[in-house]
Design a protein around this nucleic acid. Sequence first.
DNA 1: CTGAAAGCGCTTACAG
DNA 2: CTGAAAGCGCTTACAG
Lengths: 341, 341
Amino acid sequence: MIPKQTVNMTDVARRSGVSIASVSRALRGGPGVSPATRERILSAARELSYVVSPEASRLSGGPTGRLGVIVPRIDAWFYSTILAGIADELDTLGVDLVLCTLPDAAARHRFFEALPLRRKVDAAVVVSLPLSAREHTRLERLGVPTVFVGGHRTGDHRPWVGIDDERAARQAVGHLLTIGHTDIAMIQAADDADIPWATDQARIRGFHRQLADAGVTDPTVVTVKWSIDGGSRGMEMLLSQDRLPTAVFCHSDEIALGALRTLRRAGISVPQHISVIGVDDHPAADISDLTTVAQPVRAQGRLAARAVLDSLGTDERPETAPPVTTLATRLVVRGSTAPPR
Amino acid sequence: MIPKQTVNMTDVARRSGVSIASVSRALRGGPGVSPATRERILSAARELSYVVSPEASRLSGGPTGRLGVIVPRIDAWFYSTILAGIADELDTLGVDLVLCTLPDAAARHRFFEALPLRRKVDAAVVVSLPLSAREHTRLERLGVPTVFVGGHRTGDHRPWVGIDDERAARQAVGHLLTIGHTDIAMIQAADDADIPWATDQARIRGFHRQLADAGVTDPTVVTVKWSIDGGSRGMEMLLSQDRLPTAVFCHSDEIALGALRTLRRAGISVPQHISVIGVDDHPAADISDLTTVAQPVRAQGRLAARAVLDSLGTDERPETAPPVTTLATRLVVRGSTAPPR
DNA sequence: CTGAAAGCGCTTACAG
DNA sequence: CTGAAAGCGCTTACAG
C-alpha cells in the first residue's frame, strides 16, 4: 500500500469517529458542535498535523486567503515601501499576497480587461493608480472589497489612504518663506503620458497658493519628467536663465536629487548659493542631506491592508477605520536649505 | 434571473459547442484537440474573458498557476529590483506571483516550519537567503522546483542565478590599484546575526586576494553593519585612526554612501583627499557620483523566473539554462575615485 | 448536536 | 479527436 501524500479531513473524521461535516464545523470554529466532540476533533487534527486544503475550502465557498495588490511598478522606493507595509500587516494573519504589476499601458489594459485576479483574491489594494471610469467599472467586477492607497485621491467615497499633497507642498514652501526666501522657483513634474500614476496637481497647487498667501506671484516654473534625470534637466533649465532664484521647490525628492546633481557638477554650492527642498523623504534624501517634507509611506501600506482586511471580517479589529484616511506629513530640515545671503 | 458572478468552464464549453474536457485540454495546450476545435475554444474563452479557477484546477491535480517568491524584505533596492525582474518574466504568462517576506527570525522560522506555500504554488524562487540544512530540507517538502537567486551561492548543484562576488571585489580593488593606490582600506559588512542574508565572504576574499596579487598585505579593515549608517560609522572609525588611507573599498554601495556622508560632514573632499568605491550600482550611486562595480539585478530576477518556469514546462523555451548561472559585473567609473596625490 | 449528500470547477484516465 | 464520468477535499443547507 502506498501511503497517502497528505492527510485530509476524512482521516481526521475517522480518527475522531465523526463525520467530515462535524470536522469542518469544529475546525472553522462554527456553532453546532458539542464541546466534547469539538475537543476530540481538534486533538485528532493536531495529532495528524492536519491542515485544511485551501483549494478545496475555497472551491466550496470559503475565502481564498489571498489579498491582491496592484502596483504600477515594484522597483521604485515608494511602491516597494507601500508593499512592505502591506506585507507587515499580512505577516501573521495567514493571508497570502498576490502581486500584480502594470509596467506599461499594454499590461494595464490587459489587467483591467481580463481581470486575472478574479476569483483569486478576497480583497484588493490598488497602489497609486488614478483610474479611468471604465477601469473603475472593470475593477468592481472583481467583486471584492478594494482600497486605494497613495497618489491621486479617488474623488468619491471610495476607501483611500494617503497624504494631503497640497499641504505637503505648502509645508515645503512655507519653510523656504520662513527662512527668508521669496525668489522661489519650482521644478515640477508632468505626468507620464502613458500611465498618469504620478501625484496629481496638488503639489503644484500648494506651491502657488502658499506663495500667493505670502504675496509672491508669478514664480518661475519649469516642467520636466518625474525622474532623477528630469530633475537634473530642470535645474539645467533654471541655470540657463538670466538669474538664479535663491531657492527651488522640487516636486519630489527624485526631482530634487537630480537638481542637486546638476548643481554639484556646475560647482554651485548648496545651500550657500541656492536652497533646494523636495517632498517624500526618499532614503537618498538623507544621504544627500536634502531638506524635505516626509510622508509616512510604510504606514500607508499598513493602513490600507488593515482597512481592506477589516472590511473582510478577517480580522477582529472593530470597523472604525474611516473610508478616507489622510496621514500627516512632516518637515525634515537638513543641509540643503538655509537663509538667502 | 440573477446573472452568475463568474464564467466557468461550462460556459466556455457551451459557447464553443464542445465538452468541458476538450476545453480543459485546449486551454492547457495539451494534445488531443484538433486545431480547429482548439481555435474555437480559445476564442470563446477570450470573448468571455474566462480565467481558469486555480482552486478547481489545483484540486483536480493541475497546476496552481502561481509562482512563490521568498524574499527577506521588499523595501530595499536589491530585493525590489529582483522582484521586478521576476514580474517582468511572469507578466504575459498568466502566472501569478505570491510574495512571502521573512522580515525577522520569527517569520523565518514560521515560514520554514509551517510551509504556508505548500500546495499553493507550482514553483518557487528564493531570493538572497542562505539556508541552513534544516531549512533546505523543509523547503524540499514544498515539492516544487526551486531556484535560488542572488546572495550566497548554495554550494551544491541547486539551480542558482547570481554574480561572482569575489570577482566584483577584485574589479573594484583592481581599479584602485590601476590608478595608483596601494594604501587601500576596506569597510566590510558583517552578516546580520538574526538572518545572515548578506552577501557571503566572497567580496572580502576578493579584496584581500587582489591586494595580495599586487603585493599589498595587511590592509586596514573595519567591520560594521550592512547599512548606510554602518558605512557612516565605518568611515568614522577610519577617520579616528592615525592616518587616512588614500582609498577605501566599501563592501557595498550602501556602505559607500554612508562613508561619503561622513566624509562630506567632516569636510574631507572626494576624490581629492580620498577615493571611495563600492559594489552594486545602487541607484543612489549615480546620484552621489560614486564609482562602483555594477551587477545586473533585474536580469538576475528575470533569469531566475525563466529558469524555474522552464523546469516547469510552462514555457516553450528549450531547457538549456544551466543550473548555475553567473552574470558578469562591470566597473562603472564615476567621480569618487581618482589617482592619489 | 450530528450526518448524508449535493456541489464548488476543474483534470484525467477511460471509452468510444 | 472527443465526451461521459469519477474524483480532488472541502462547506453548507437540509434532514434527522
